[in-house]
Design a protein around this nucleic acid. Structure first.
Lengths: 238, 238, 238, 238
DNA sequence: CATGAATGAGTATTCATTCAT
DNA sequence: AATGAATGAATACTCATTCAT
């Protein structure tokens, strides 16, 4: 029976969650012009991502966001129109990232089993690291996805994963490695479930079972477990 | 509440989401006493469950809850002290149910494989039906589980599943049916993930892929898929 | 050639205009209960009438209204829902008054000529005294009457004048005193025009011609002139 | 103006009210130089006239004006100094027109009765067509005429009508056609009242009585009615 | 002459909660 | 036990105006 990684009480953030990734928000000393709309927008967007992710759409305070920004509240409205507009911009940015990175894996060049493994590992790592993304998706679901629905780029961006999976399945079937009765969207849902839940619901899980699933020591085990589960699921049985 | 001259601008809850289960909130004409504290409390609690589940803790409005109640706002404070107090009461009520039902399955009396199947199917069905529960867990995680932590009955109630799984694994290993390198808490996490995600994140999933995972037609397929995935995962390979 | 009543410069109000009518807003020392919703509402409504009339809908400040009230801004929203709701309530009140008073004249009991004279004189006096009413109508027209349209009682209240005029015309024609080619609504428009314009546009008129048409010394002359004009207009010529 | 993520909520002017007269605002493709200060000014002024007339001084938005302009907000301040300065420029332009046109009638060359008829008809037509003028006068009165007072050309321009009327009255009295107890300014007020009110207050009048006084079908009738009323009023009775 | 970016002081509105009855 | 009235502190958003280029 494996080790138990018990949680340090009080370590769970209700407050911001930096993900360990250095914020690129602070103005760089060199190229610092007085008028730099792109930087201003990016700055606002970065702060907003953290704030919305930490507090939710209704919980987040426009004033709080503005205060942590290099500019004023007024600029926030100047560029994003409203709290909801800013929230939508955050959603768009954040969803854009994961799909872009997925594309960089060049999975179509790998052998089906290795490709599947790479896809699952990438999905795992991304969710494990980008907690903001996970929280924002969660938040958006509480709002019935009504904001993301208005983001024009949203639907188009997501089909790419499905194509990747379709391609993997097809090649795997041809190679006699994968079963032929699987639906790519269902499979994507399965992979997402396994990678998302342990991050998104780690707090209640932690309190319920005294074990924080996002603990570094557990990460490797979970990663392996999930890859294993998916591969066993897709593999053709003889 | 006199708002005689206002033009109402789409107030009300974002999505009532009744789960198809008839609300037991409306007072039945017969057994209706003038003052029934228990019924009043239950009434408030039911409405609050819907409202918190639909809007989140910060999103829910005390006024909105009170309005849909048979009593007034004052009573809400009288019985539950504060918005947060009411929210905690809701959490307590909702978490109580699932674990109690799990016990009724008498899984220990079943053959390991059948027991595992029964457990997964129960978990699936429960999440599929109790959307409010799923939403509330989600919401609670956004708040870092800090409210559920104060619910005294919470921790105790959850260990029972782990015991059930431990028992299943032990018996399955003994019978040569299950592999022996699995951690029961990890396995529980896996089952939860698969059952929870498709409900909790069905909105973004639906908009992203044009397919609502909670659609009745998909339910049976997902159910079978998840059972299959878990059994393949725990099964001992030769 | 008659006297010129020149204007005192600087006497024209951009600020409130009490109309010389004592405000019934101050709480009476005797019957002053702590909780008196009716008085609270009336108080808010009175102050709002002055403020909207003096500043217009967009020009009026909710804070300014609240400040001159015995209660707080919050109560204003409690009872009237919004700035616009309050504005609508003011319109309703103010329009209600003129029509109610018109009814009190019992014009149907008078001889047609005397009735017509009475109606015109009443209309004149009302506009001359109730400058708030005149201003509010003006303001509402700048907004394309879109607020008054939503006041349910509005249309019903106004037909009464038309009935009064119809009755007068019919009786006057029968008595051979009035011409028979007049439309009652047109006639009402004419009377209104004559009584309204000299009050509503007295400021530009004053600056343009150096004579304030609302000056007390001019009032009697205008009153007589208007009655004269109307009677000459309706009278049957032989 | 970047408002990319906002959901537009019915901004724009309440009612464009073009009077059926084609706006001369759009730059014509041909004679279009790169920098034409006069055209820029005129363009701003035209847009501002519409906006102030539609929304009032407080209701109009500098941003809204600038947006409908061919230039930017900055230019507006460059040429007119402030919102109020622009408003005054609009007033000056608009008041200038009516008096100039009156002069073109050459009323002094007509027989008194015909002259009076011509004056009334002109006044009627002008108000009927120049709704912007009517609205702006109305707006200015809400502000106690304090802006028009500062328009230097204003007073001088208005005396001319009075002279016209004085002349008409004098000649009419001499010819035994007009009564001799009339004050020219009062008479001007009367004519204005009759022509102004039906345009300025047509919205409330319309909703109150279900009849739009500015409807083309009514125009001719009203025109005749008003001429008739004025002539009956000034005519000497035997 | 022309412009996009930036701003501080307001401005309407909302929210959880408590008081007086 | 129950209630309508009342409230202060926030909260999202707007507006006329100016700066840097």
């Amino acid at each position: 029976m494996p080790l138990e990684y018990t949680m340090k009480k009080g370590s769970k953030a209700a407050e911001p969650d930096t993900n360990g990734i250095p914020s690129d928000t602070a103005p760089r000393a060199d190229a610092r012009r007085k008028y730099d709309p792109e930087q201003t927008k990016r700055n606002i967007l970065d702060v907003a991502t953290q704030e919305f992710s930490a507090m939710g759409l209704t919980g987040a305070r426009v004033d709080a966001i503005a205060e942590r920004t290099n500019t004023t509240k007024r600029m926030l409205y100047y560029y994003f129109g409203s709290k909801e507009g800013l929230y939508q911009a955050v959603l768009e940015k954040v969803y854009g990232d994961i799909r872009a990175l997925e594309q960089d894996l060049h999975i179509s060049e790998l052998d089906p089993v290795e490709g599947m493994r790479a896809l699952v590992e990438f999905t795992f790592d991304y969710h494990d690291r980008q907690r903001d993304f996970v929280r924002l998706v969660t938040i958006e679901n509480i709002h019935g996805a009504k904001y993301v629905e208005q983001v024009k780029t949203f639907k188009g961006r997501n089909v790419t994963v499905i194509h990747t999976i379709e391609d993997l399945l097809r090649r795997g079937i041809e190679a006699g490695q994968f079963r032929d009765d699987l639906d790519p969207i269902d499979l994507h849902l399965m992979i997402s479930s396994l990678c998302f839940h342990r991050v998104g619901n780690r707090h209640t899980f932690g309190t319920a079972f005294g074990r924080d699933p996002s603990h570094p020591r557990l990460r490797a085990r979970h990663r392996a477990m999930i890859v294993d589960a998916v591969l066993r699921f897709v593999r053709k049985e003889d």
